[in-house]
């Protein structure tokens, strides 16, 4: 969970070399695409995430359609999916220009080639990424509940009772075994209070100016 955007803008795991590519003009150099693609696979292996670096890959694809590599795009999209509810997925799609797939006439109709892509996406979501996706669910639950029934949480996470118990323990949540109700520790999102927003007046100078202005 990225609570502050600064970790999203520049994750602590980003190396100086990548930082140079992300923030400098070298990001436009097509010959750097390999470095960024390797970095993507590194993120996948070590469960890191660097949205801006991945967007830089898509940027290179946008300007150089020849570089386009569907596998890389799919992996970027999956990575972005796991950061929901942040809009990373849509930010990535924005950069995929109107025709992401090569409309080379030698190739058959794009749909058959798209289908396996979608299937791969689905499979990947099932396999190696399921914990990342569970992260997304947990984020949503953590924000909305203080206590939740074990059965309900189990369906959300697609975990059976034994696995669920283990997962809950890992999260540091507690379960009341007699009622099957899980308590979620307090966090800023599940602690609510009514507030009264008071007006904050600071612009003494400009207010005075207005008065003079309209009075003159």
């Amino acid at each position: 969970m990225v609570a502050t955007a600064s970790a999203w803008v520049s994750p602590p795991t980003r190396t100086p070399e990548i930082e140079k590519l992300v923030s400098g003009v070298d990001r436009y150099n097509p010959s750097n695409v390999g470095i960024l693609e390797d970095y993507l696979y590194h993120q996948i292996r070590s469960e890191e995430y660097d949205c801006l670096a991945n967007l830089a890959i898509l940027k290179l694809y946008q300007f150089n359609p020849d570089l386009y590599n569907p596998d890389v795009v799919i992996n970027i999209l999956i990575k972005a999916l796991t950061s929901s509810p942040f809009p990373d997925f849509n930010l990535c799609i924005s950069l995929l220009d109107e025709r992401p797939l090569n409309t080379n006439t030698d190739e058959p109709d794009p749909l058959p080639s798209l289908l396996p892509v979608l299937t791969t996406l689905y499979n990947l979501l099932q396999q190696c990424f399921e914990d990342s996706v569970r992260e997304v669910v947990i984020r949503a639950v953590k924000a909305a509940f203080t206590r939740i029934g074990a059965e309900r949480l189990g369906t959300y996470l697609d975990l059976s009772s034994a696995e669920l118990d283990a997962h809950i323990e890992k999260l540091g949540w507690t379960i009341d075994s007699s009622t099957g109700v899980i308590s979620i520790p307090p966090n800023p999102d599940n602690q609510i209070e009514s507030t009264v927003v008071q007006e904050n007046i600071q612009r003494h100078v400009s207010f005075t100016l207005w008065i003079e202005d309209s009075a003159s």
Binding site: F145, T146, E193, S194
Partner: peptide, 13 residues
Amino acid sequence: VIDENMVHIAEST
């Protein structure tokens, strides 16, 4: 926030 099956609501005015 939802406490099991009870929804608690807070409003800012």
